[in-house]
Every structure is written in structure tokens, then in C-alpha cells.
Design a binder for these strands. Structure first.
Lengths: 220, 220, 220, 220
DNA sequence: TATGAATGAGGGTTCATTCAT
DNA sequence: TATGAATGAACCCTCATTCAT
């Protein structure tokens, strides 16, 4: 309720907040894109995404100049949701392994596989807004892992990058309409992977534990 | 210019057996397709596959009426190689867990992730020549697993379908040029998964152990 | 909120005369359009014109219902400026050939090439406000030419239409960003053309001398 | 009539001459493009060019990867025709000024205005095949001019670049369907320009005489 | 009134597939 | 048979124009 738009030269306007309907559209686009990326992969037709979002195709381009920009925002969105889940679970669940398990299965149901485009070589990992999202996610998940590590329940040679990449790959959708049948396997595989993470370690791993920051540098 | 009519496969109808150069072309196409499927995903342009194989695009169509047919043969080819590996390892390695581990890592290096299109809903799992390949692969890998099971080294609630699907997913290539950087993770993840497979089981799995035959029926 | 009904142009219907800022916007739009027509041709994006004018795109449409209307006004504006120049030069310069030369080169620097859309078949030459502008321009330039003719310095078989069309074509901008390099040629070409206009005529011309009124009728 | 295609490895083939129908298509495309560039400017829709050439749109892309490539070939084609005209006229017409006049008017009828895109800043003037075409055209036209210069009929401060640019601009088509009405003016303007070129010079020109090579360097 | 946002139609380009040599 | 060429459908993206604030 500022005194507001009294007078101003045509271009003196800057901080005008986005219109409510535009914001709603932007959210719809991201939601539709996440769904279609999950169903058809990151090559899903943008026109179809627009249709699913209930808007015209050109509106999508007003919000996202190209496919990369859209993927970028979907990745941010998925990371934010995963972070929120991890943070909530850290508060609600006291047993450290259980917390980790809940997080992993919840992330799967949340289609965290939509993060996979981030791993592709065409993804621009250098944009600064990604750093904040990455730090938040790393903080939250590494928090869960560290608790389990401290309790002697998690092997010591793994880190958050290992978990997130495997989680993304194992839940990564197959192109072609809803491979719902895959859901049957996903939670089994995740559980097996989790079992492999437990301490004591049953084998020696090659390479070294990976952070999310490592992924950032993994570009070609 | 042989006119021999001696052998003939089940579907051979014409008297002349395929010319040697035609056979060679077919092999080149399958090899190039496997490479490009690994590098760019199953959506790799067919013209590019033909170019990589050193033949004209129309020649590809003479051998494979459409993309599905080509994927089909690539899948058969990859399954055959994986089967051969499993059979060889069963002979060469006596320790059952070690044998399993060697198989898994070898299959990864062989880009078994190219099997993933088989899991897609657009893949025709009903074709009879797949049955033979599946039975051979199932026999070989289940053989390795059963040995470990008998030795009390493998948990009892997993089967060959679990292993092969997770193996495919974890090694599945990312679209966009060779995400070689992923290689750094792949073998770590596979090892963690293998650790999770060991007996004694560290958790209870949802669902039931899956055979390859189960995958056949999992179509939408 | 003035309620004045004093003056009203021919088509003014509403009582309130246009607000000062609206008038200023209209002028800005025409100025920006002329610039962009010169730089990119008459196909310049309207959104870009609005941006250059420092206004929103919809405001442009409030003033000009479509691209034709905008072109129309730009043409009127350019004609008015050229007329003013010709009238001023007629007063200031006594030597008739020199006056003509000054007019031509001045018009070139004024980007009279923006008149070219007027020659296009899609231009509506029938609108009445064009008649007035045309008559003024014809009067002014024909005045300059007639003086030279009377003095025996200008060949008799050319008229104002010949001069203005050639002037427009020779100074017409090339599409694509500012072909400033063309400026090097423009004044040379104009001078050569002027030399060709001088009496005595060095050749016989086909057709007949053209007035601006002739151009009006030349539509398809 | 070489012994020809006996045997060769798949990629050993190189010098295979283009198929007759492909060559015919290529020529049709260039012809249609020249027409449409003349009628609608260099922004003419490629789909329309393909339609006019009687082929599918994708065929156009097989021959010319993008609009620039097509413009390039049209420019080469127009330059070649103009060169041929100039060379023929040099042989057939003995009076040097008459020869020049015939060349200019013939080039206009040949729509040499289609050369204008070459002057645009988006045109790649550096490609080597242009050099040959430019040298041929320069040689032929400069030959005509030099004869007139030697005979004392052409002013000394102009060169081939001046003539060709003015010729292109004065015959340059207006966007919008067939501005045939312009034809009425074109030959008058060209003649006036030619009269201005005659010796003795009636004025002093700014800048310096331009060769076609100068145009090559005039890029932004 | 002035504006940012929305939109549909159209052009540019790629690609799976078919055709003709 | 193997091939280069042709094709239409589908996609990406732009832009003139309209809508809602």
C-alpha cells in the first residue's frame, strides 16, 4: 500500500512486481514441464507442455526464452522440493537410517528423476541461482547422511553426490508414456542401494566420495 | 554368387542366402546404432547412424523397416553379448560373489545401458526371437545368482530381473554427447548396489523378486 | 480533465483534445519507426519500435491500428520534412541548380529513403491526408525544378516524380543492420544523377515526365 | 565415359557426379528464388520458393542449408548472367557509350536488382567462389567502361563499383507483389544516371571511384 | 490511458520414411 | 542391391495483434 505509481517517466518503472496471472502461468508451465519431462524425457515437445499447462505456445516462450531456460527452472523447482522434504524429515524422524530411507523413497515418489537433465552435458551448471539451490540441497541431505554416519550406521566412503546421482538414475523415467510398470521396481532398487550404503561397508569403492559441488565441475 | 540353399533360419523363405556384403552391412548398422544409442539416446537420427556405418540411409531401411526394428536388433545384440559374458565368467570364476561382481562391471563397460529402450512402453516385447535371447540371458545370469544364493552369499528376495533392470538404469547414458564424466560414478553405484544384494538382507523389500519373463509381461 | 471543445481537426469527433503526453507518445513512435524502417526496412518488428520509443507495445496499437497506419504516418512525416527543407532552400539559395543539389543531398541525409514503402503496392495511396502532403511536396520541389528549368539549367523532359523516385531508390536502406558503408556511395550517385538532369539533355528518355500525382495512380 | 563404378568400398566413392534430376531441381530452386527475391525481397518465404520451384520444402534444404546459402547462389547466378551479357555486348557493339547503355538496360531487364542482398551487412562477402565471379564481372564491365574512358566519352572519376551499385539500387524491386509500375521509371532513371556519367564531368564527386573489390571490403 | 501479458498463425528447420536411379 | 534424393509432418520459435489489469 505504498503511495505508488503517481508519476514516472515511461522507462523509470522497474520494480513493478509481476502480475498475478503471469505468476500463475509460470507455475503451471513448470509443473507441466516436470510432468512431461518425467513422461517423455527432456526432449518433450514444448508445444505439448504449453498445451498441458493450458496456455498458448507463445506464452511459454515469453516466460522461458528457450528449452534450456525451462529445464533450468524445473531443476530448481525439483531441487527445492527435495530440499524441503529432507529438511522436514530431519525434524520429524529421529532414527537416522529411517530418515534417510524415507527421504529416498519420498524423493522417488516426487519424481526426482526429473533432475537427470541436470547431469546432461548440455546443461549449464554455472548459473549462480543453481549454486544456492545446490547448497541448500547439499546441506539438507548431507545433514541426514552425517547423522547416520555419526551413529555408525552409514559407510564412510560415500557422500551426498553418490546418493543423489544414483537416486536420479534409478528413478529416471523411460521415454514413452508412463512406464508406471517401472514403479514396481524402483522402490526395490532404492532399498537395495540403501542397504549397500549401510555400515559396515561390504566392499571397497573405486574413486572418492562425491559432493554436489563435484557434479558442478563435472562438465565436459 | 553361391547358389547354395543349404541352411536356412526359421524365417528364411527365399532360396539364396543373404550376400556376404549385405550381412556385413547389417552388422555395421547394428554396431553403429548401439554406439549412437549410447551416446545420444534411442532418438539418435537414423541418417547419422547410416553415416557412421558408412552406408547410405536407404540401405538402413532395406535392413530395418523402421526404428523399432533396429532397436529390436540392437537389444538382441546386447543381450547376446551379455549372455556370452555371463557364461564365460561362470566358467572362469569360482567365487560366486566375485563372479557376479565381474559380470556386472563388465556389462557396464559393455554399455549394457543400451538395453533400456527394451523397458520402454513402445518396445514390442512379444516378438518370438526375443524369447530365445531372454531365456539365454536369464539362464546365464540366474545361474550366477543361484550359485551365490546356494552359497548363502546372496539375499533370497531378489532375482535376475531386479539385477538387470537396476544395472540398465544405473549405466544408462544421458542424452547429449558422451557424458563420460558419469563413468566416474557408475562403478561406485554398481558396487553399492551389489553390496545391497549380499546376504544377509539388511531390509525387507516390497513386491516380489522379478524374472526377465516378468518384464515381458510388464507392458502397458 | 479539460473539457475544452475549441479546435477540432477534420476527424476529431470526441470533445476532449488529445492529452499532451499522448501526443508526445505519438511523435516518439513515429520517430522510432522512421529510424527502424531506415535500419531494418519496413518489416521492422513493431515491438522493437515500441521499445525504442520507450513505450509499451499496446500503446503503439492505441495510436496506430496496424502497421499500414504507422507506415502511413511515417510517410507523411518524411514528406512534411522534405517539403519544409525544399521551401527553406528555395528562400535561402538563389542559384537554381545549387538549390536543387542542396535539396537532394539534404533529403538523403534526412533518410528520405524511408519514403520507399509509399511506392510499394501494399501502400494505400488513396487516403486524403496524403493528397495534401503530396501537393505541398510537389509544389515545393517542382518550384525548385521550375526555377532551374526557366534558367535553362534543367532538361525539359523530367519532372518532380522522376526526381523523387530516383532519390528514394538511391538512398533506400538495405535490410540488415545499418549499412552505413553505403553512405560512401549515396552522395556520389545522387550527384551523378543530378548531372544527368542538367540541360542540355544528353539523351532522349523513354516515357514521359512524371508528377507525384502520377505515382498516386500507379497502383496495381 | 570412364570405366566407372565397378567396385569400391562404401565410402571410397567421391567423384560421383550429381544426379540429373537433382541438378534440375537445384536450377529450378535458384530460378524461383531469383524471381521471388525480385518480387518480395530477400525475405521471401522459403516455403513459397519451394512451392514455386515445384518441389517439397525439405528438398530446398537438402540443396541449401539455409537462406544465406541460397542467396549466395542466386547472387552468383545473377553475376554470371550479367558478366555474360557484358562480354557479349563488348563484342557486338562498337560504339563505347552505346555498349555501356545497352549493358545497363539489359541488366535492368534481367533483374540485376536481385544483387542487392549482396550489399546487405548479413551477406558473407568473403567466400572464395564469389571472388571469381566478382573478377569476371569486374573485368567485363570495367572493359566496357575503359573503352568509353579511352574514347573520352566517360568521366574519369567513376569506376565499375559506382555503376553496379547504382544500377542495383535503381532497379531494386519494392516489396509487395510485382511493382511492375516501377518499370516505367527504371529505364528513365538509368538513362539519366548514364547521362551523368558522360564526359565531360559536370561536377566534382566526393570520395573516390569504387571497384567491386572495394565492395568486398565494405563489410561492417 | 498505458501497459504487460497472452495468443494463433506462420516461417525455418529437422527427420523418419519413400522414391527413383 | 545400394544409393542419393525427395518428401511431408512435426517441431521450434517469432511476431502482429488482442486482452486484461
Amino acid at each position: 500500500m505504498t503511495t505508488a505509481t503517481t508519476t514516472a517517466g515511461p522507462e523509470a518503472r522497474r520494480a513493478t512486481r509481476p502480475r498475478a496471472d503471469a505468476l500463475r502461468n509460470r507455475e503451471r508451465i513448470v509443473a507441466a514441464a516436470r510432468e512431461l519431462f518425467v513422461e517423455y524425457g527432456a526432449e518433450a515437445p514444448l508445444d505439448e507442455i504449453a498445451r498441458r499447462a493450458g496456455i498458448g505456445n507463445a506464452t511459454l516462450y515469453r516466460h522461458f526464452p528457450d528449452r534450456h531456460a525451462l529445464i533450468h527452472d524445473v531443476v530448481l523447482y525439483v531441487m527445492a522440493r527435495a530440499s524441503a522434504h529432507a529438511e522436514r524429515i530431519a525434524v520429524e524422524e529421529t532414527d537416522p537410517l529411517t530418515a534417510l530411507r524415507i527421504f529416498v523413497h519420498t524423493a522417488a515418489d516426487e519424481r526426482i528423476g526429473a533432475l537427470c537433465p541436470m547431469l546432461s552435458s548440455t546443461f549449464d551448471r554455472a548459473r549462480p541461482d543453481l549454486d544456492a539451490a545446490r547448497e541448500r540441497l547439499e546441506g539438507a541431505v548431507e545433514g541426514l547422511m552425517e547423522r547416520a554416519r555419526q551413529a555408525g550406521r552409514l559407510r564412510k566412503d560415500v557422500a551426498v553426490g553418490d546418493l543423489m546421482v544414483a537416486l536420479s538414475q534409478l528413478t529416471r523415467p523411460l521415454p514413452g508414456t508412463g512406464c508406471v510398470s517401472m514403479d514396481r521396481f524402483i522402490h526395490r532398487h532404492l532399498q537395495l542401494f540403501l542397504d549397500g550404503l549401510e555400515a559396515p561397508a561390504r566392499s571397497e569403492l573405486s574413486g572418492s566420495a562425491a559432493t554436489l559441488e563435484d557434479l558442478r565441475r563435472a562438465a565436459p
